[in-house]
Amino acid sequence: MASCDKAENPSPCARGCGIYGAPRNHNLCSQCYKAFLKEKAPKDALTLSEKISSLTIKTEKDDSTIKTKTQRCMVCRKRVGLIGFSCKCGEIFCRNHRYPEEHACTFNFKSIGRVILAKENPLCKADKLENRI
């Protein structure tokens, strides 16, 4: 009765250590196969890290072209991060200088308000002579 683990024709280890090797271990004995795996693991890790670094290099190049500026308040130069308030004058301010009165805004709110009111409330003139011929 032959078992599945034993080979019909055992072959010597491919590294020549004198012990018989198994085909599932690339014709290496168990000790040489463990050494082979230890040698192979750093190479695989190195190739994997090279692949990853090549991917990160591409993203670094993309990031350098889209370089974002740190956002700061235009009055006190304080970093505002995600909570920066943008004004209609086009600048970004912190919470202390977000109001137009605090940062001496140059945007003309009156003229914009008048234009909006004129568009929303058109002039309605009724005909003075209702029964014209």
Results as ranks from 00 to 15, higher is better:
K34G: 08
A35D: 01
A35T: 04
A35P: 06
F36P: 05
K38H: 14
A41P: 10
A41T: 07
P42G: 07
K43F: 15
K43Q: 15
D44L: 09
A45E: 09
A45K: 11
A45V: 05
L46Y: 07
L46E: 12
L46K: 15
T47K: 14
L48C: 14
E50N: 05
E50I: 10
E50H: 08
K51M: 15
I52Q: 03
S53M: 11
S53V: 10
S53Q: 15
S54E: 03
T56S: 11
I57Q: 11
K58S: 09
E60F: 06
D62Y: 08
D62R: 14
D62S: 12
D63V: 08
D63P: 00
D63E: 06
S64I: 04
T65G: 01
T65I: 12
T65Q: 13
I66L: 11
T68Y: 09
T68I: 13
K69L: 11
Q71V: 08
Q71E: 12
R72D: 06
R72A: 12
R72V: 13
C73N: 01
C73V: 05
V75Q: 07
V75F: 01
R77F: 10
R77H: 15
G81I: 04
G81N: 07
G81V: 00
L82A: 12
L82E: 06
L82N: 07
I83F: 09
G84D: 03
G84E: 10
G84P: 13
F85N: 11
F85C: 10
S86A: 12
S86D: 03
C87M: 02
C87K: 01
K88L: 15
C89H: 02
E91N: 14
I92L: 00
I92R: 00
F93E: 04
C94V: 01
C94G: 01
C94D: 01
R95D: 14
N96H: 02
P100D: 04
E101H: 04
T106A: 15
T106V: 10
N108E: 02
K110E: 14
